[in-house]
Nucleic acid binder design. Structure first.
Lengths: 183, 183
DNA sequence: GGACATTAACGCACCGAGTGTCAAATTACT
DNA sequence: AGTAATTTGACACTCGGTGCGTTAATGTCC
């Protein structure tokens, strides 16, 4: 609903009054349901995190950490085809609207916390320790690079991109020698 | 100057009028020198990026990519001791003021672009390709994890943290097997 | 040194996001 | 139906940020 306005008129050019009017509701009422205009775009982020959490927990302890991470992230980003257009609109808005890009940092922090907790458990460390933090940052960055690519290249497959990116991560120190051919 | 106000009163509680008054300048004039209130905290970010760019370029092509990246990032974050207190104040503000955390995403994008360009050149790829993007995201995340740790633990050494984090990156797929002892 | 152009300072009015307050409307309950 | 609880939304306000237009400095050329 409001997403359509954003997609056509642009995020910045769409005021909260516009949205409220379009939904047929008072401006003040809008702010009862959304903490900010930005929050419209990231719908139910809690469920995304919950999916990630369960996907990570679903891997046995015998699977190496980075491999479990790859599986978890890929699996939690598996969407039924009919949801992909909506996802693309949202991710497009996020990646090329500065205000949203900035605001998203807050959501990402929560996402990273899930990964950090998982990594910490695996490493028998504290989530605040350096390595779990590095791993969570790296996982987020890798996922974001994949999403960014997906947004810019609609013909490519999101899952495949995530898979490729995370696999590259697992062999980072081996493949990235000078002179190595990029695939 | 304005940083002191942020540090004592808090970022959100300090209005632009407060700052302008403290500096003895009109509100409108403030906005001639800073595009936004947020921009005060990230001083001359261009010089940071320039340092990174030259530090990366300074490594010979014979040094492996991830190693050159580590050297470049560590070197570009080598500050004279007298600048560390100021840096700590700024980074503390950034890491625990949501508004700044969000705004910083825009600066980070520029930083990543520098890394992506470097990585792309090394891989004979395009900066927009998946791998350069992954590498730039990973580098940023690793640096941020180090900074976050440094802010939370003032007794630890920033350079050492960066060094440790980036070294861990180079052996990610080797050390992070289940049962491996965290160091 | 004086006339002129340029740039900086800044007051004013405005917009849009977000919040607190309070009264009216709706809904739920018995 | 009548009462209590919840939802809605109007109003006023704060704060960040911008456009505009005017005054004050600052430079520049003859």
């Amino acid at each position: 609903m409001a997403l359509d306005l954003f997609a056509t008129r642009g995020f910045d050019a769409t005021t909260v009054d516009d949205i409220a009017a379009a939904v047929g509701v008072g401006r003040r009422t809008f702010f009862r349901y959304f903490d900010s205009k930005n929050d419209i775009v990231w719908g139910d982020f809690d469920s995304v995190m919950e999916r990630l959490r369960t996907a990570l927990a679903g891997r046995g302890a015998d699977v190496p950490l980075m491999e479990a991470l790859r599986h978890g992230v890929v699996e939690s980003n598996r969407y039924p085809p009919e949801q992909l257009p909506g996802l693309r609109i949202r991710m497009t808005l996020i990646t090329d609207t500065p205000a949203l890009e900035a605001h998203s940092a807050l959501r990402y922090a929560a996402w990273r916390a899930v990964v950090a907790e998982f990594a910490a458990a695996r490493l028998a460390a504290d989530p605040a320790d350096l390595m779990p933090q590095v791993i969570s940052q790296v996982a987020l960055g890798t996922a974001m690079a994949s999403f960014g690519r997906w947004v810019a290249h609609p013909e490519e497959d999101l899952e495949a991109l995530l898979e490729e990116a995370f696999r590259a991560l697992e062999v980072l120190d081996l493949s990235l020698v000078p002179g190595a051919r990029p695939r």
